[in-house]
Write a protein that binds this DNA or RNA. Structure first.
Length: 504
RNA sequence: GGGCCGUUAACUCAGUCGGAAGAGUAUCUGCCUUUUAAGCAGAGAGUCGCUGGUUCGAGCCCAGCACGGCCCA
């Protein structure tokens, strides 16, 4: 049998155990963080002497320069990275046994004073060295790091260990969510949690995942949106609510889509979609300031500014000024279809006019919207939950927000007329029967809630992954999701059928 | 779903015209008590993604499949 690196390290680990050194001890009292010590070297270097003070830190070894009876090791904790110097005549016999078997990747506890090396680096002079966890597998190479995207996503822990940018991305994502919570908390919104498993999936046009409840013997759907439940809460008198949580949509994966993704949705009684647009500008500026310390930043080589006021254009207007469609084209269905064909925009000729207009918008206008832009007044056919415009009943009091060519948010004055809502659902059911798999289901229970009365309300959804992409300059959604969805690893498939695999 | 590209040692990558599988890092052995991708001497390490085909001979050419990346739908 050939010895792998795993075998060799395991042997060394077992040899330590025979020497009475536990390679996987329980706990460790960590007295200091690396950033704390490095801050002291900046602020009070004169206080650091060979006599003291003594610091105690713990971390993972990232590099070892060994000289036989001494070594420089680089190690890191959650706060940073620093160097330690270990020499035989400064530590006890047990520690020297550990020292001789150290590998990059091991966790150690170190106690000692701080000194400056000949080359000027502040370094911990170890008086105690404790093995805290033996690493059996080699880490990726120190200079080239881990690059293979597949490995980075499947084994995100390696990516986090090796690539500081990855770590920073996810720390920043966490700050974004925290900033959003503080924004809504400050405005007296209540954070709530609504069902992720729903008997009728609603609130968006999307194909759901299905599952089955055994004890109740009923189908349940992973939610595609929390919308209809949040509005029931507004009916219930919770006038300002928000939820930040996962939605699930059974569609393809791409650099912009993951089957599960995070949405912020909030509902605000007595407000309109105009209020939402104002609030959204404030919200995004607040988040950018909290997270980046600025409202202007670079995204994929383009400068994006959150400074207001943002452009607000109606969809029809945008199609004319940006999409290059004449007014008469938008008013005549046949001309519209001809226009779509002339622009090579694939459309379903049987679809209702509002759907075709939206397709044209997606293809011709959306990619052009780099700076934050609200597009408002969506056709009623594609907005089954939005209030109708009083002036033009074929349009709705709805907008979407686009930044860097991506849809980031979707908001509207909510439809609270129960009879209109029932009619819209019936139209959706007809669309579904006509083959539109993403059309809404009838939700009588929701209509009943509206019959009790929902105050005039405005509500909005914000794609948190896409916002995180913007603020971390990520080109792919996989860079801002810790464990993005992947197919079965090729190695897992051989000789082992997936449980629900379709016969092909 | 379609197009293009990729898959070679633990990691990052070479591999020419089809003719004996390579480098650096990591690992192992020896030396080495202030290094900065430490150094010196030596060693081990491969299902070249998988299956089949063409060929005297395939990492390389062809086909199918798997996984991944980018673009399009």
């Amino acid at each position: 049998m050939k010895k792998t690196e795993l075998d060799i390290r395991r042997e060394k680990m077992e040899a330590l155990r025979e020497e009475g050194i536990e390679p996987y001890p329980s706990g460790y009292v960590v007295e200091n963080t690396i950033s704390e010590i490095l801050a002291l070297t900046e602020e009070a270097p004169d206080s650091l002497t060979d006599e003291g003070p003594v610091f105690g830190v713990a971390g993972r070894l990232m590099a070892i320069n060994k000289f036989g009876k001494s070594a420089f090791v680089r190690f890191k904790d959650r706060t940073g990275q620093m160097q330690a110097y270990i020499r035989k005549d400064q530590v006890d016999e047990q520690a020297f046994k550990v020292f001789k078997t150290l590998h990059v990747g091991d966790f150690v506890g170190l106690k000692g004073t701080i000194f400056k090396t000949k080359t000027g680096e502040w370094t911990l002079a170890a008086r105690e060295l404790t093995l805290l966890c033996k690493s059996l597998r080699p880490l990726p190479e120190k200079y080239n790091k881990l690059k293979d995207p597949e490995k980075r996503y499947r084994q995100r822990y390696l990516d986090l260990i090796m690539n500081e940018e990855t770590r920073e991305t996810f720390i920043r994502r966490s700050k974004i969510v925290r900033a959003l919570r503080s924004f809504f908390d400050q405005r007296d919104f209540l954070e709530v949690e609504t069902p992720m498993m729903q008997p009728i999936p609603g609130g968006a046009e999307a194909c759901p995942f299905v599952t089955h409840h055994n004890a109740l013997d009923m189908a349940l759907y992973l939610r595609i949106a929390p919308e209809l439940y949040l509005k029931r809460l507004v009916v219930g008198g919770l006038e300002r609510v928000y939820e930040i949580n996962r939605n699930f949509r059974n569609e393809g994966v791409s650099t912009r889509h993951n089957p599960e993704f995070t949405m912020l949705e909030f509902y605000w009684a007595y407000a309109t979609y105009h209020d939402l647009m104002d609030l959204t500008e404030e919200m995004f500026q607040h988040v950018a300031k909290e997270v980046l310390g600025a409202t202007t930043f670079m995204y994929q080589g383009q400068e994006i500014s959150f400074e207001g006021p943002w452009k607000r254009i109606s969809m029809f207007n945008a199609l004319q000024t940006i999409g290059g469609a004449d007014k008469e084209v938008l008013e005549d269905r046949d001309k519209l279809i001809a226009f779509a064909e002339s622009k090579n925009v694939p459309i379903d000729k049987k679809a209702r006019t509002g759907k075709i207009i939206t397709k044209l918008f997606d293809a011709l206008v959306e990619p052009e919207l780099v700076q934050p832009t609200f597009i408002h007044s969506y056709p009623v056919e594609v907005s089954p939950l939005s209030r109708r415009s009083q002036k033009e009943p074929d349009l709705t009091e709805r907008f979407e927000l686009f930044i860097a060519g991506k849809e980031i948010a979707n908001g509207f004055s909510e439809l609270n007329d129960p009879d209109d809502q029932r009619g819209r659902f019936l139209q959706q059911v007809a669309d579904k029967e006509a083959g539109d798999e993403e059309a809404h289901w009838m939700d009588e229970d929701y209509v009943e809630a509206l019959e009790y009365g929902m105050p005039p309300t405005a509500g909005q959804g914000v794609g948190i992954d896409r916002l995180a992409m913007l603020l971390t300059d990520a080109a792919s959604i996989r860079e801002v999701i810790l464990f993005p969805h992947m197919r079965h690893a090729a190695s897992l498939k051989t000789g082992d059928e997936a449980p629900n695999k379709k016969e092909g």
